[in-house]
Design a protein around this nucleic acid. Structure first.
Lengths: 154, 154
DNA sequence: AATAGTCGTAACGCTAGTTGTTACGACGAC
DNA sequence: GTCGTCGTAACAACTAGCGTTACGACTATT
């Protein structure tokens, strides 16, 4: 197993969406060059991470019907749908588990006006905000992402 | 120190914004009832958490100029601005540290077309999405939040 | 039938963030 | 001087994400 050098940046947030988009873009480009399937090893080299990380992420994308995998000797990954028909929201839903914001860990004091009303109030507000976020993610297709990638000046 | 019973829900995401909004709403309502300052102990009881958690969060809100604190015997917390002038974005910026989505932990393969273009591409996309999220958070004032809290049917 | 390449997945360690808790000094109204 | 509260350090517990190793499952090729 190749040992990949680690970067030095300190990162707190999730890179799952970024890596998943990276993998799909890589597969698509590779297929457009005439290859049938891409291996997790190849994708991992491009993303500078471990093949198992790629396989785990692609496994979730497969559950969502976005990619397919073959096993055996000529094995690897291919796209299940055209990039134009896949949005970042599809990828987001496939790889991101929970809601953006959470409620209190322990139920607030139901005898207090604020403690009683805060959760319904915030849930309503958060619902609207997440809807907006989802609409934004749905506006970007993976074809847009690949176009932006190829448009980066060298 | 009072021991608060823990809820049983499994929560992964951040409740910081929720608790911060809870605290500000509580302080405001308490002040509207004629009191000068609210203590972290009182707020913690309403939010069903520990006073230190409240003090930590309110400390960040103070750095952002949203609340003030007094020390000494009649000590406690008060609002530095009217609730109408404080938006959820102000609170979000005060208590949430990083960006929503992250890039790769280690720099992707710069010799690969995808590895080279993916970060500029995703950064541009994420920038737009976070701007939209911030605009949504800015549309909601803490006065709106308190109104929603008080409007919850019992 | 044997081989070999790749997936599928379990298991574990490391790092980091969040929350809860205890403890104690600092401050200031009385 | 006293006392109540803040300010903050320190630590434990828990969770999530990522990287890594290991190995069985599968299948094209020979």
């Amino acid at each position: 197993m190749v040992s990949y050098g680690r970067g030095e940046e300190i990162v707190s947030a999730n890179s799952r969406l970024t890596i998943a988009a990276h993998a799909m873009a890589w597969i698509s480009l590779y297929q457009r060059q005439g290859h049938e399937v891409a291996t997790s090893e190849q994708i991992a080299t491009s993303a500078n991470t471990n093949p198992v990380v790629i396989r785990r992420l692609l496994g979730e994308l497969r559950k969502a019907g976005l990619v397919e995998s073959r096993r055996g000797v000529g094995a690897g990954w291919s796209l299940a749908r055209e990039l134009e028909s896949i949005t970042l929201l599809d990828v987001y839903d496939a790889v991101e588990p929970g809601p953006l914001f959470a409620m209190h860990r322990a139920t607030p004091d139901q005898g207090c006006v604020v403690g009683y009303g805060i959760q319904p109030a915030m849930q309503g507000i958060y619902r609207g905000i997440e809807e907006t976020l989802r609409a934004e993610l749905a506006r970007v297709t993976m074809e847009d992402v690949l176009r932006d990638i190829l448009a980066t000046p060298r």
